[in-house]
């Protein structure tokens, strides 16, 4: 985490004074973006940097669904299962992804390429069903589009790119 401190210092500038505690969440997000997850050493360093109680960081990490303390696959497929997506075929999308990748929601493919997660409404109901791939929304999904997407991502990995 320590190499991110200059960035954190810059972030602080727009906050009012005395908002160190507020930085917990943005710092954790940034750390996760950097490493893929939040490691024990990050927690220790963050607690030391922000001077907040460690329990606060642990509570925040355990509460928010987007934060994680363990690495996951290279591509995080997050499929919405809430009302509008379900009404537009999300259950089929999730079942299809699950079959195609050979993992259940919550699991990662053995080669570490894909992690499949079911999530609640992503605020994109008008273009349901929606699947997030890492940060990006993929809207109006269908099994054909999914196949193409997954195949492209997998091919990219095989070719050594990103």
């Amino acid at each position: 985490m320590k190499h991110l401190i200059p960035e954190f210092e810059k972030m602080k500038e727009r906050y009012p004074e005395g908002f160190e505690s507020s930085l917990v969440l943005p710092c954790l997000r940034r750390i996760q973006e950097d490493r893929g997850f939040v490691a024990e050493e990050d927690i220790v360093a963050l607690v030391d940097y922000l001077k907040v109680p460690r329990i606060q960081v642990e509570e925040v990490l355990s509460y928010y669904t987007m934060l994680r303390r363990k690495p996951i696959g290279r591509f995080h497929l997050q499929a919405c299962r809430n009302i509008a997506c379900s009404m537009r075929g999300a259950e089929g999308v999730i079942a299809h992804l699950s079959r195609k990748l050979g993992v259940k929601p919550g699991q990662t493919t053995p080669d570490g390429t894909f992690t499949l997660t079911e999530v609640e409404c992503l605020g994109s109901c008008g273009t349901a069903p929606v699947v997030m791939v890492n940060e990006a929304y993929h809207e109006n999904m269908s099994t054909e589009k999914l196949d193409r997407l997954v195949d492209e991502l997998a091919a990219g990995v095989r070719a050594g790119g990103k």
């Binding site: 109680p53 329990i55 606060q56 642990e58 509570e59 355990s62 509460y63």
Partner: peptide, 9 residues
């Protein structure tokens, strides 16, 4: 001590 917390939701 901030020794205890409530984890999860």
């Amino acid at each position: 001590s901030n020794g205890l917390g409530m984890q999860n939701r």
